[in-house]
Design a binder for these strands. Sequence first.
DNA 1: GCGGGCATGTAACTAGTTACATGATTTT
DNA 2: AAAATCATGTAACTAGTTACATGCCCGC
Lengths: 178, 178
Amino acid sequence: MSLRHALLGLLAVRPSTGYELAKEFEGDLGRHAWQAGHTSVYPELNRMAEDGLAEVTAEGARGAKTYTVTETGRTELHRWLMSPPGPTRARNEYVLRMFLISALPHDDALALLEQIAESTGDAAAELRAVREAHPDDGPLLGADGFGQLAAEYGLRQYEAVRDWARWAAERLRDEKPA
Amino acid sequence: MSLRHALLGLLAVRPSTGYELAKEFEGDLGRHAWQAGHTSVYPELNRMAEDGLAEVTAEGARGAKTYTVTETGRTELHRWLMSPPGPTRARNEYVLRMFLISALPHDDALALLEQIAESTGDAAAELRAVREAHPDDGPLLGADGFGQLAAEYGLRQYEAVRDWARWAAERLRDEKPA
DNA sequence: GCGGGCATGTAACTAGTTACATGATTTT
DNA sequence: AAAATCATGTAACTAGTTACATGCCCGC
């Protein structure tokens, strides 16, 4: 039930409507950490309100409901974050693809690794360029921090995958030299 | 429906029983890429056999059924791996925790980041030691390759997270110097 | 002969996705 | 006035988990 904690965390950073929360999952959050559509978000917010973790603190235009985390919710988020995670489960189709490369014949595997190195390298370069353009030293905590933490994580992630793919491609090239 | 492709990939590397396949998900595969219990694996294998992607090629002791990928299955795996992935979805509770750190108060966030840097650093050091001990230059493709690819990915992953946590901790220390 | 690991499965449940549905505001 | 975007929701379905259930084989 991590969706609940994801929403709790987002609300702890800043009160939001379900619509805004759902959009967060389209960025780095959804790409690297947790992903959910608005059809999961709205019912979960209702349940969280029932359970006293969040409450509706404003109603705006178009029936928009702004949720705010309650003290109970904040306590629960703190407890969850500070308690050691059990064996942690992951689902990442992209990583799965990388692992399965060893099931391919040599030439296909090599081509795929080179393609992975290139696309992750491009993604990393792009993110690095964006970061150089805004050397904003805003606070790492709160609303801005969330974005910075996530962006930096994404950048380092792409670089790690790029380097891994380069390593694997090089080993593969040595293995069967034409 | 990535479980199907995960199983297809594992079977393409080496014919296995459902039991063996289920165990694979307890290692690096389940930790970083895809995770499933035996109760998902057995029904899916049956469905894959029905769909002609795999077949039972041996029956051993204790009712063990060894599945082998068919030519159709191998073609499908190849098609899937070589076709560009759409926007890829990820679910990783550990990463989610990292992103939500910005919802914590300064001191808790710093303590947690330091703890993450330490535990991922330890994990990386351990994996690196194991690798130094076995500098096996076995082939990167096929059964061994799968393990090597996954192990190397895991190692680089832990190092990337360790470095990210160190970066974040350092920024946080500067932000509010006691 | 007994305990642990091998080996398979079903049933009930939970979480999340896709498709459908509606309507209000803002921008062009 | 139309299009885009904001904003919320329900229903049917799919995927995966937890709990339950069974039994065989091997080492001690």
